[in-house]
Design a protein around this nucleic acid. Sequence first.
DNA 1: AAAGCTAATCTAAACGTTTCGATTTAGTCA
DNA 2: TGACTAAATCGAAACGTTTAGATTAGCTTT
Lengths: 341, 341
Amino acid sequence: MLHVAEAARVSVATVSAYINGTTTVSQELSGRIEQAIREIGYKRNAIARSLKIGTTRTIGLTVPHITNPFFTDVVSVIQQAFDRAGYAVMLCCTDEDLSNQDEQIRLLLDRMVDGLIIARVGDGAYLRETVDRANVPVVLLDREVDGVDSDRVVLDNHQAVFEAITYLLELGHRRIGYITGAFNITPMRDRMTGYHEALLSAGLAYDQSLVRSGDLHEADGYTAAMQLLSLHDRPTAIFSANNPMVVGAMKAIRDLGLSCPEDVSVICFDDFPWADVFNPQLTTIAQPVQAIGEQTASLLLDRLNGNLEAPSRRLVLKGRLMVRNSCRPLQAGANIAASVA
Amino acid sequence: MLHVAEAARVSVATVSAYINGTTTVSQELSGRIEQAIREIGYKRNAIARSLKIGTTRTIGLTVPHITNPFFTDVVSVIQQAFDRAGYAVMLCCTDEDLSNQDEQIRLLLDRMVDGLIIARVGDGAYLRETVDRANVPVVLLDREVDGVDSDRVVLDNHQAVFEAITYLLELGHRRIGYITGAFNITPMRDRMTGYHEALLSAGLAYDQSLVRSGDLHEADGYTAAMQLLSLHDRPTAIFSANNPMVVGAMKAIRDLGLSCPEDVSVICFDDFPWADVFNPQLTTIAQPVQAIGEQTASLLLDRLNGNLEAPSRRLVLKGRLMVRNSCRPLQAGANIAASVA
DNA sequence: AAAGCTAATCTAAACGTTTCGATTTAGTCA
DNA sequence: TGACTAAATCGAAACGTTTAGATTAGCTTT
């Protein structure tokens, strides 16, 4: 900017005023400045600017895994929303690891992001502290933090799973295997209670042996499904609490020489673009990713636009059961036949 | 930092020295500084630091679409690599739009990123200019820019498609539909020549009517496949030049009441995690995403570490044909039977 | 014609670091 | 003891902007 000012024979203040349009600059000087900018190929240094004005127009976004299609989609929507609003987004993947997450958040805060969107992983003092008394607005995505009430948008996980399990029950399934992630994140807890209560309202007992816990990865889904399907009294249906794990589960089914839905019905949480193209067409619980992303963005943008006083908001969206053909109806006796097999 | 200095009764220079370990600081002062930092909850302002030292430890990454599984995977790998190296990454999606891309690159440059990784879309003066005389190192990913020789890592698209088409020919297919994106990006051109030459070496004529061009989106794949499959003399196989378009193509096959591979064989460029789980298990060309991501990152990191003199490097990786069961062998006469049907 | 406005431009301080060179302190050696 | 050296600490300038307030010039108004 100094060079531009010199070339245009004006002060840097005038150049700044011209660029930002803060004051009217005469025709003559405008022309000279414009020309100098072009000649020099000047670009405003956003770092210096940020230092002075105290805002970076950048937000931080952390997700566990970008390859999980749910997060891929949400990240995409959020990215677009902030792009439109003139913000850049720094993306961090925490890899389902708590210390990674702490590190990433620290990094983002150091870089003076104006706001933070966190799809947290695990629980930890640092996160709570950050969310509690960070001087930047943060909105929690998908996963809440106990006892912390910042802005957040989440799914009604309980209801969604309740509906899905009820659907399986109506088809006649009685032994429904359940593959979950660890209960240190809210969605896994809420999904589990949905399962629990659906069984309960159908008058079925909760069978511990039908529930397997993994670490949300494909490999865990594989192991879990292998175990479930090797049970003497094999489940006739399997529910997977996320998408990567269902891929593992499907591979287990394949490797055991079984097929879906003939031998075992399958439902999973989170829809994906291929679901209705290949066979079996998987019945899934679709999260409204577009809405989730947009609401998350707009919650944060609202704070960034100065609305800091409003009490914290909790948005709860509904999932939708996408019934396809990965679940088959069971005759009254079929269940018993299958379990004897 | 000023506050810390005051609280610890030292100068800011000493605090800085302590934090960065640039000079030895006495036990006593170290203790006081450490305590002051903790009490105040001080965090170093990376913006101010960047302004002073002239580096942001941030890189910019632009891709057309993050929801395309190829880019999802590559972004994920790149993200990890830079994370390890202590860099943050700013992610931008250009949405296959040239002016978007210009805008995004401008934005990243304004923000003083230390380097740029660009999976470009379209062609344009601004990009060429940027790549040519940006004062930051840039590496091109997946798609090259004609006449610009910066560092880049690309696939041997020609060979990969040649192999895939040859495979179809060996199965007895003679009429192979080809769904491509616009030819303004190198991979689409190179893939096309692979198709072309495979036909040529089999002594087959190139049939214009079997090639449909779209805009890389699912919807385009749908339209293209619809047209191809409605031809009087319908192709017995379809090749899709990217992943999103094959999803559209599969939907078209489904909607026409046809099935794969019985009625039409399908191969697509880019593998995806579900490929071998559902039916038909799609035969694909898998790009070595891990290697691509890592090489791209290491090329850029090398420049960032000061190796600015080395001549530009062009890394070419090989794709791999993942043969599954979406292509069926054709008897000598089957082709004719199918075309008559 | 003097005083008062307005519009345009400028000067200089500030944002929070890093870093160079200066200063202080303590220790060593002749 | 005095000069010299090394170690520790500090003062102040610099990075490239923004912005408040000062200054100047050109008009109106009386």
